[in-house]
Design a protein around this nucleic acid. Structure first.
Length: 269
DNA sequence: GCCCAGGTATAAA
DNA sequence: TTTATACATGGG
């Protein structure tokens, strides 16, 4: 990973795009303010900037290397992934070109579990709003904003306590996940080590996690890129654009491919 | 007002 | 085992 240490920021070549990556329905806490993107993830705050040639990370070199380089998946060659996709089906070339700067973020597991439980039967603007309320009401306050709340805090909550986040019927799902994690009946690190089907089964012990949310949580929260979340958009895309392809055809890069297809289908179907 | 949203739990067939 | 319906809330 090539990078330059400048005065107050780390600069890299523009090997991905901030908007396409931070606002494509995989993460919900990044905001654009003026010419900067900023957000809180992994209990840290980051401000970012980009132009046609460069991306800047406003943090120390140590934090860039220990945290953000991995979070933004900078060690993975997405150009190679897109080339392999184009070989699978010529239509995939147009699909990747629509948002060539997408990357799959390596998000916190618990936050991803919550985010995609909250996403069910819901729309992206409101998902963001609910997560914001969840953080401001139950997350630790820092000088740079509210952290994503720990599951130990949510495990102590009643549905009535969670009414303030206006998540509706999804509140009990958050409590179910938090309680199972707090009790040790499911464990993030164990799920990380499981084979993919055992991991799916473990997550679906939570009330509120079905096949789709489990797939999202494993892709975005555990970086299991063989996962291929199928929602209404993906079902339409696969039917209309790629009827001769299935998730298995993408192999270990299914999740990456899915994100390009999802983004494209939301804007073109 | 109306429709519907990156689904799932639950009941019924 | 497959299919239908309720679900809380608010964005568009």
């Amino acid at each position: 990973m090539k990078y330059e240490v400048k005065d107050g920021f780390i600069e890299i070549d523009k090997i991905f795009d901030l908007e396409e990556t931070l606002d494509c329905g995989q993460a919900f806490r990044w905001k654009k303010d003026g010419e900067f993107w900023s957000g809180i993830a992994l209990d840290k705050h980051l401000k970012l900037w980009q132009d046609d040639k460069k991306i800047r990370f406003y943090c120390a070199e140590e934090e860039f290397l220990s945290t953000w380089a991995n979070y933004f998946d900078l060690f993975t060659d997405y150009e190679k992934i897109k080339e392999d996709m184009a070989k699978l089906d010529p239509k995939l070339k147009d699909i990747t070109k629509f948002a060539p700067g997408i990357r799959i973020l390596k998000q916190d597991s618990w936050e991803a579990i919550c985010s995609f439980m909250l996403s069910q039967n819901n729309n992206i603007p409101r998902i963001k709003g609910i997560i914001e309320l969840l953080c401001t009401n139950f997350g630790e306050k820092t000088d740079f904003g509210y952290l994503f709340p720990k599951y130990s805090v949510i495990a102590k909550c009643s549905e009535a306590d969670l009414a303030v986040i206006k998540s509706g019927f999804r509140a009990k799902y958050l409590i179910s996940a938090a309680t199972l994690l707090e009790s040790g009946k499911i464990n993030i690190e164990e799920i990380r080590r499981m084979d993919i089907n055992a991991a799916r089964d473990a997550l679906q012990l939570v009330k509120g996690i079905g096949p789709k949310v489990a797939e999202c949580a494993l892709l975005y929260g555990f970086y299991r890129t063989e996962c291929f979340p199928m929602d209404v958009w993906m079902i339409r895309a696969m039917k209309e654009l790629l009827p001769n392809l299935s998730a298995e055809d993408f192999g270990k890069t299914a999740g990456m491919a899915q994100q390009y297809i999802f983004h494209y289908s939301r804007h073109h179907l």
